[in-house]
Design a protein around this nucleic acid. Structure first.
Length: 564
RNA sequence: CGGAAUAUAGCUCAGUCUGGUAGAGCGCUUGCUUCGGGAGCAAGAGGUCGUGAGUUCGAAUCUCGCUAUUCCGACCA
């Protein structure tokens, strides 16, 4: 491909709205073009990378028995009603009406459509198991798209769904998917952190997320360096260390004027934060939920969400709190009425705590929940942090941030049951298929590769997905140089390599800067000086310096380079 | 959905406070000179100053509404 015939652009300056490296370079290199918030067009350069990633994922899906299909993006509300998700999902699901006034949706994922396809064909246990996958546009009406391709509204996703006759068979396939995912990420140069994750409104039980470890990540991960426990902070468990003081001391009211935060109170009373109890209020279906966690920790809204099976959970307003007999800022469930009280596991056996006195300007010392709170439920509702210890081995936990590259998920029978994807078992009984689902965001992976592999000048694409295998740059406008470049191009192309020739009448500096933005693994420069000796310059994108190579040795050397 | 900000040439931005002929750099076109990490000179093309009202003799500039975009947070199979 001659650059003069290619459709491309590069930006000299950093787009004003780009902050993350992947966003900056994908814009500057002319890979993507924004069309609206979180909606991007792919230019030829970007599309080539995307297609290469797609190809690589396809190979791995086929290698574990996947069969590629294609499902519609526009679907009926009716289909989504079958699974119950038409009402269960909030505004993230884009709803609209067609000309006949039928309610429709833009698919944000394809469990329903895939289950629909499965039930059309499935009738006997003899057909199981099978795994179907596709590369398909998803639309999610994200409240806040950000970071270029990292979090978008419309995106390409590989989504796979497997169907099984037994949970053992699902387990077996789940492991195959897990290994295939590791291979996919390794092939693009990423070593993911695999964490246990929330199963959310998908139903199901076990789920893992594959995360790129990066400070730019949106997800918080909790890791144990000694035993390998890894979980998304949303659901991470940790060992509780109930505060133990003087178990026999009885509650005593103390003045704490204007001390509304845990930090203020613990400093003022000279007690450690973990000896206080943080009281947080939520409104769940107009019922007041009072949550109590150790003062040094935060409430995990995800855990609470899952515990309550809540769709809408919002902070309670002051009037509601006062109506239950509590005083915001100085609150505790002691003596409270008309509220459901949930306390974290870490407080169940704690004693001698400082809690609110439900009177402005006062707290109570020496409180023991078991004794002093009339009735409560105990649950795991505090958020893990670096202050906590590993639930498995008791060592100190670490926190890091990550970008979710993909997830795998044991769905179970949520969809097959509600939608009737059943089969007759060997003993003639009708059974719902047991399902798993497995997703990878293709565009997000493309951006993540850049996050993971770039320098100050641009992306450094791995050989597996680079937009071209080789870029040939002519160093001066000279017919002879172009002839050599063209000869190399045709030799390499015949050998199956994809070659970009920068044949522009531009100064070398311009060409080199652009080459860096395109991140092609191998750059061959054809210049007058080298040509005298029948040599070209061989430079890897990963290296700073180049070496001289005889023109007639180039083809073999390229083959060798790409064989590795 | 809360908080903050921005909207002027293809891109990055100045001009707005203090109303009076639409600006710069880069990019683009043409010519000349250059030619190894985003060259120089010269001449050009390119903008209903997001949008709608209002104030004014006069609005990019002041006032109000709307829209879009970005950042922080909330939300997020």
């Amino acid at each position: 491909m001659k650059l003069s015939k290619f459709f491309y652009t590069t930006l000299r300056e950093i787009p004003s709205d780009a902050t993350m490296p992947s966003h900056v370079f994908l814009m500057r290199g002319g890979y993507i073009k924004p069309l609206s918030t979180g909606i991007y067009s792919m230019l030829p350069m970007g599309f080539r990378v995307l297609k290469n990633i797609e190809k690589l994922i396809r190979e791995e899906m086929n290698s574990i028995g996947g069969l590629e299909v294609d499902l519609p993006v526009v679907q009926t509300a009716e289909l989504w009603n079958e699974s119950g998700r038409y009402t269960a999902i909030g505004e993230e699901l884009l709803r609209f009406k067609d000309r006949n006034n039928h309610p429709m949706v833009l698919a944000m994922t394809h469990e329903e459509a895939m289950t629909d396809m499965a039930r059309y064909v499935l009738s006997s246990y003899k057909q199981l198991p099978f795994m179907l996958y596709q590369f398909k546009t998803k639309y999610r009406d994200e409240a806040r798209a950000r970071g270029g391709l990292i979090r978008v509204r419309e995106f390409l996703m590989k989504d796979a769904y497997s169907f099984h006759a037994s949970s053992e068979d699902l387990d077996k396939h789940y492991e195959e998917e897990y290994q295939a995912y590791l291979r996919i990420f390794r092939r693009v140069g990423i070593k993911p952190i695999v964490v246990q994750s929330d199963t959310g409104i998908m139903g199901g039980k076990v789920a893992h997320e594959f995360m790129l470890d990066t400070p730019n990540g949106e997800d918080y991960l909790i890791l144990c360096k000694s035993c390998g426990y890894q979980a998304n902070r949303e659901i991470a468990k940790f060992e509780r260390e109930p505060y133990q003081g003087n178990a026999n001391a009885t509650p005593e009211k103390v003045a704490t004027p204007h001390m509304e935060s845990i930090e203020d109170v613990s400093k003022f009373l000279n007690v450690p934060p973990e000896s206080t109890a943080k009281c947080v209020f939520f409104n769940f279906d107009n019922q007041l939920i009072t949550v109590l966690v150790p003062g040094n920790l935060e409430v995990s809204e995800i855990k609470l969400h899952n515990l309550l099976k809540a769709k809408d959970l919002v902070p309670a307003d002051e009037a509601m709190i006062r109506a239950a007999g509590m005083e915001p800022g100085f609150a505790s469930p002691m003596g409270a009425k008309n509220t459901r009280v949930i306390i974290d596991e870490g407080l169940e056996f704690a004693n001698d705590l400082v809690m609110g006195a439900n009177e402005a300007g006062f707290h109570m010392k020496h409180c023991t929940p078991k004794r002093d709170i009339a009735s409560f439920e105990v649950a795991d509702i505090a958020e893990a942090s670096e202050l906590c210890k590993c639930p498995n081995c008791g060592n100190k936990l670490k926190e890091t941030r990550g970008i979710e590259l993909g997830n795998i998920f044991k769905l179970g029978t949520k969809f097959s049951e509600s939608m009737g994807a059943t089969y007759l078992s060997a003993d003639g009984k009708s059974e719902p298929a047991i399902m798993g689902c497995y997703g990878i965001g293709v565009g997000r992976l493309m951006a993540s590769v850049v996050e993971n592999s770039h320098d100050d000048f641009g992306p450094i694409w791995p050989k597996s997905i680079a937009p071209f295998h080789v870029e040939i740059v002519t160093i001066a406008k000279d017919a002879e140089l172009l002839e050599v470049a063209e000869k190399l191009e045709s030799d390499l192309t015949l050998a199956g390599f994809e070659v970009l020739v920068d044949d522009r009448e531009e100064r070398p500096g311009v060409k080199f800067k652009d080459a860096d933005l395109w991140g092609i693994p191998l750059r061959i420069s054809v210049g007058k000086k080298g040509l005298v000796n029948g040599e070209i310059e061989w430079k890897l994108r990963t290296e700073k310096n180049f070496e001289m190579v005889a023109i007639n040795a180039v083809l073999e050397k390229v083959k060798l380079f790409y064989a590795k």
